[in-house]
Amino acid sequence: MQQVANNHEHGHAHDHEHGHEDHEQLKVLGFWIFLVTDCILFGSLFATYAVLMHSYAGGPTGKELFELPGVIASTFILLTSSFTSGLAILAMNKGKVKELIGWLVVTALLGLSFIGLEISEFTHLVHEGATMSTSAFWSAFFTLVGTHGVHVSVGLFWMVAIMMQLRRRGLTPVTRRKVTTLSLYWHFLDVVWIFLFTVVYLMGVM
């Protein structure tokens, strides 16, 4: 509706530009659909975890090995990074490229420390004798948490690539769309982590 009104106001000179904008909007929707399918991937892994939650096979349990302080720290780190990626979007809407890149750097650093914490948690678990092959529970655990960790890592590489593009090309409809999809992806990862934190860790130590 608004698109029609806009066209009317600006005459036909901008038709092409509008077509371009529409295209970028369509790509955001396409990315959203990808996120929904990713949701289904995580849903399946959560289902697997829920089913195998108590299959310890005589090995260590989550209650014995989970260390909440580290997990709480990662939770707040990821939550804050989700917020800062939102601030990046606000900076983008104001047209401030430097501020935008700045917030993306903050977001990436928070994401990096999240991954650092996760790696140290995993090495700790392996040292305590909980590997992927220890029991069905630990297989499900490492698959679920590891898949999320891989998503965050991929997001970090993507973020660095977009920062480089922003440096080189500045704010164009294309780079805008890329930052928008990136921040959607980042919020999505935070949402997945909320459920990981609740189902795996909080219920695990109960």
Binding site: G43, F46, T48
Partner: peptide, 13 residues
Amino acid sequence: GLVIVLTIVAGSI
């Protein structure tokens, strides 16, 4: 997506 996720999770459990 949520309907599918809920079906998978609740159904499996």
